[in-house]
Structure formats: structure tokens, C-alpha cells
Write a protein that binds this DNA or RNA. Structure first.
Length: 435
RNA sequence: GGAGGGGUGGGAGAGUGGCUAAAUCCAGCAGACUGUAAAUCUGCCCGUCUCAGACGUACGGUGGUUCGAAUCCACCCCCCUCCA
């Protein structure tokens, strides 16, 4: 695989600070859950430390968006994205909160799992309750009681997932609402405007996300459309955004290496604060996705955060982090949680299976999460079989905690320069092949 | 005792002569889910086997009509409602 110049590890002082921050975080969570302090957690609270320091030194929060690296380990990096609403530790997993809620979760519990940032969705929120309404109500953060960073998707994914309800043109996408059949139009400019109305800290350009397989010619014209939309998005963003907000461009090009390169070249000219890799995990399979990342990530701007959209399962994330990705989002922990699938350190299990009916053990007593620690598999099994509301709530909670621990472990491993050892352990525990 | 209604696969419940190992729902057993139209969707769900097929048994019981019966006839058993 091709590589850019490796970045040197730096920030030993930060490494020490993490231990201190970890204690703060553990203490904070224990107090929330009424647990005694003292047990070591795998995560560290960079966020809490940064915010505290900033308040002490400047008396107010920064209004700038920035990304800084603390350490690298091969292509993998760990660092911090600063936003006016707080820091995002990378590699980061961002729970998906499409319609103004991380489904089945209280916002404060999402936070307690260790999430620094969550997703919102332009298409869904513009239909219901409406972007202007959210703005009148004080913005999405206030509306949903999540005062921390929010990244909004542009509606680009819905261009694909709601293909039967839309018409695509140069100007934008005409949608027929899946809710009431009414007609709506989403242009790159309108998407940015909506994301500004929502108050998103990180916004995504409108793009077209084609499924793989796709013919190369078709993939190229789609990629070029997305690139033109990136430019229009940037212009609209410069006009409508407030200080500290960021717009990310999206690399497309399906699984064609030269198209990915061309997409990157076009986006780099825009000099955006971050870039996403889009159009993956859309049917190509893990091995092919990794192959595309190998051919793509090294050409992306190493000074900017790299966001792999819509990915993925734990093994996908581990493999992508090893290839230099900094940000992830995926419905897997939340949707699967609602459907009875629990992610564990030994791989995924289906709690609805009869084998758990008499299993008194919790999903994971080493996780600092009530859903993982304080309820037996037998109880969770029963809740699912009985169709109780608590069932999807608890399993979603556990899955998010499990994902956040994975991210914390990855950050710690990179910081310590022992990512390959961590990956070997991950493979051994889950039996997953990470190409 | 009289009148009427009914007995179908674990449960509910379609089915009145062949297209019926028997609709559908529930329960049960599994699987899927990757920028969320998802508390959703899919498969299996009588038994046996050389299991994407074959065979066997099956619609209260027994006997009959018929080329062919869950479906028609006779008798028996059981359940429900109303009247005495």
C-alpha cells in the first residue's frame, strides 16, 4: 500500500495528562451511576481536561475549528478535533441520531458512554420537524438536549437509500417525502442552509453515494457531480455559516482507484477543514473496502481529519483506523441493539437466542455501563422475548458503550505505539480477519 | 330431557369433493442489519431419510360413498349456547 510520509509521534506530555484525565472521567461516570471510584477504566477524558484548562486560562471557549495530532502509529493517528462546543477525541465513533435522537437512548446516557459527537440528518430533520422550526426552537443541540458537537449528514445518503423517491439533476435532488408524499428539493446550497439552521458543528457537503458495483463511467460522472456540489457547498457555507463551524468534503469514486485520486485532487483545491471517504460499505465487502482505503487514504491531506462515512462493524473500524481514518459513524450499534444483537469483546451475539434464557452473566462486567454490567443476559433475553421497551434501550446502550471502549482502546494503543499488538489481540478475541 | 352450534397442525383460526402437509396471525427456532423510510426484514416451523428432494402419517373416533374426502353419509365420543 502506498503511504505518505509518516508523522512522528509527539506529545509525551499529553500522554501523561491522559492518566490524570482518565481519573476525572472515571470519577465523573461513577458518580453519575452511584458507583465507588477507583477502578481503572480503559478510556481517558481528554474532553474534560481540555474544557477545564480552557476555562481557567481564557475564561471562554474557543470559536475556532482545529485538528491536532497527538501521536501516530504507522498510518494510524490519534488526536483531537476542537470545536466551539467541545473536543472530539480521534479516532472517534459518532453514534447516529438521524431524527434528532440516538434511537432508544437518552442524550445524557449517550454522553456517558464516551461519545464526543453525534450525527443528525438533513433530509430527515427538514421533513420533520423542519429546519426552520428547529432554528426557532434554539437549534438542534438545545432541541435534543445535546450540548456537545453534532455532525450532520447532508442528505447525500438518502439520495441512494431513497432512490425510488427522488430525481437527481445537476441542480440538486428532488425528493418525494417518504412520510407524506410531499415534494421537496435539496440542492447543495439548501443542504448547507439547513445544516446551518440546525446549528451543526460539522457539516457535510451534499453528494451522490452510488452503490457498488457500478460501471466506471457512471461512477466518474457521479464523482464529478459530487465534486461540483462540493464547490457549491463551500460557497454557500462561506455565506451562511457561523464561526467555528466546519464543512467537510466527500471523496467519491466507488472502488476505482484513479477516480478516488481524481476526487481527492478536486477536493484538495477547496482546502476544507476535513474530508470524508464516502461511498464505501455499500456492498463491496470488507476486503474490497480496505483495498480502496489503501489506495485512497494516503493521498488525503494528513493535516485534516479523515472521516469514513457509515462504517462500520468493530472489525471494519479497527482495520480503517490502522489505515489512517479518524472518524466513524454507523447505525450498527444502535440498530442491531434494537434488533437483539449485542457486540461483545468476543464478537457479536444474538441475545434472543434460546441459549441465553438461563445465562446469569452480564454482557460485560468490565464495561463502565449499567446496561452491560448490571443486567444478566437471561434478563435481556427475556425483555426481548417479551417485546419490552427496555430491551432495545439496554442493548443500544451497551453497544454504544462497547463501541466507545473500542475507540478508547484504539486511541490508547496508538498513543502507546502498540496498535499492531492491539489488533492481534482483537483478532484473537473475535476471530475476525482484518486484512 | 329438548333445540341449536361446534370439534383442523403448540395456540387462535381459514378452508365444504381433487390446485391441501392444509391460508393467515401468534408462539417457537435461526439469520440479516454498515453516512437509519427499520422496536425492522428474511428463512424454518408433523415425522423420517440419501433432507432446495423422497417417503410416511394427519383435520375428534369408527365405518361408508367416491377414481379421489378435512370437506359428503351413518353411528359413537366430547365441547358450547339457549330452553326445561
Amino acid at each position: 500500500m502506498t503511504q505518505t510520509r509518516p508523522l512522528q509521534r509527539r506529545g509525551l506530555a499529553l500522554g501523561r495528562g491522559e492518566d490524570f484525565a482518565q481519573q476525572i472521567r472515571v470519577r465523573a461516570e461513577r458518580s453519575v451511576y452511584g458507583m465507588p471510584c477507583g477502578k481503572a477504566a480503559s478510556d481517558f477524558n481528554f474532553f474534560a481536561r481540555r474544557a477545564k484548562t480552557r476555562r481557567m486560562t481564557t475564561g471562554r471557549r474557543s470559536t475556532a475549528f482545529s485538528f491536532s495530532l497527538n501521536a501516530t502509529d504507522g498510518p494510524a493517528r490519534t488526536g483531537v478535533i476542537e470545536t466551539p462546543r467541545g473536543a472530539i477525541r480521534t479516532p472517534a465513533f459518532m453514534p447516529v441520531g438521524t431524527a434528532g435522537t440516538v434511537k432508544a437512548m437518552f442524550a445524557e446516557d449517550v454522553r456517558a458512554t464516551g461519545a464526543d459527537v453525534i450525527l443528525g440528518n438533513t433530509y430527515h430533520l427538514m421533513l420533520r420537524p423542519g429546519a426552520e422550526r428547529v432554528a426557532r426552537l434554539g437549534g438542534l443541540h438545545r432541541f435534543m438536549n445535546w450540548p456537545h458537537p453534532i455532525l450532520t449528514d447532508s442528505g447525500g445518503f438518502q439520495v441512494m437509500s431513497l432512490a425510488s423517491l427522488r430525481k437527481l439533476a445537476e441542480e440538486g435532488v428532488a425528493f418525494r417525502s417518504h412520510i407524506d408524499g410531499s415534494n421537496h428539493f435539496l440542492s447543495p446550497e439548501r443542504s448547507v442552509e439547513i445544516q446551518c439552521l440546525l446549528g451543526a458543528d460539522i457539516q457535510m457537503q451534499l453528494d451522490e453515494c452510488p452503490a457498488i458495483p457500478i460501471a466506471q463511467e457512471e461512477a466518474r460522472s457521479s464523482m464529478l457531480l459530487s465534486a461540483r456540489w462540493a464547490l457549491r457547498s463551500k460557497r454557500a457555507f462561506e455565506e451562511k455559516s457561523t464561526p467555528g463551524q466546519a464543512l467537510f468534503g466527500i471523496v467519491q469514486g466507488a472502488n476505482f482507484d484513479d477516480l478516488r485520486r481524481e476526487s481527492i485532487d478536486r477536493l484538495l483545491e477547496l482546502d476544507l477543514p476535513g474530508y470524508a471517504v464516502g461511498g464505501l460499505a455499500v456492498g463491496e465487502g470488507r476486503e474490497e473496502m480496505f483495498r480502496v482505503l489503501d489506495a485512497t487514504v494516503p493521498h488525503m491531506d494528513a493535516r485534516k481529519p479523515r472521516y469514513l462515512m457509515g462504517v462500520g462493524k468493530p472489525a471494519d473500524i479497527v482495520g480503517a483506523v490502522a489505515r489512517g481514518i479518524d472518524m466513524f459513524d454507523c447505525v450498527a450499534p444502535t440498530r442491531s441493539g434494537r434488533h437483539g444483537q449485542a457486540f461483545t469483546q468476543g464478537g457479536a451475539i444474538n441475545i434472543k437466542n434460546a441459549q441465553y434464557a438461563d445465562d446469569e452473566s452480564p454482557l460485560d462486567e468490565t464495561l463502565d455501563c449499567p446496561a452491560s454490567r448490571d443486567y444478566s443476559k437471561a434478563y435481556l433475553h427475556h425483555l426481548f422475548k417479551a417485546g419490552e421497551y427496555l430491551a432495545p434501550m439496554l442493548l443500544t446502550w451497551h453497544n454504544l458503550a462497547c463501541y466507545q471502549r473500542l475507540m478508547a482502546d484504539l486511541r490508547a494503543a496508538i498513543a502507546a505505539g502498540r496498535l499492531s499488538a492491539f489488533i492481534a489481540g482483537f483478532k484473537a478475541a473475535t476471530g475476525e480477519e482484518i486484512v
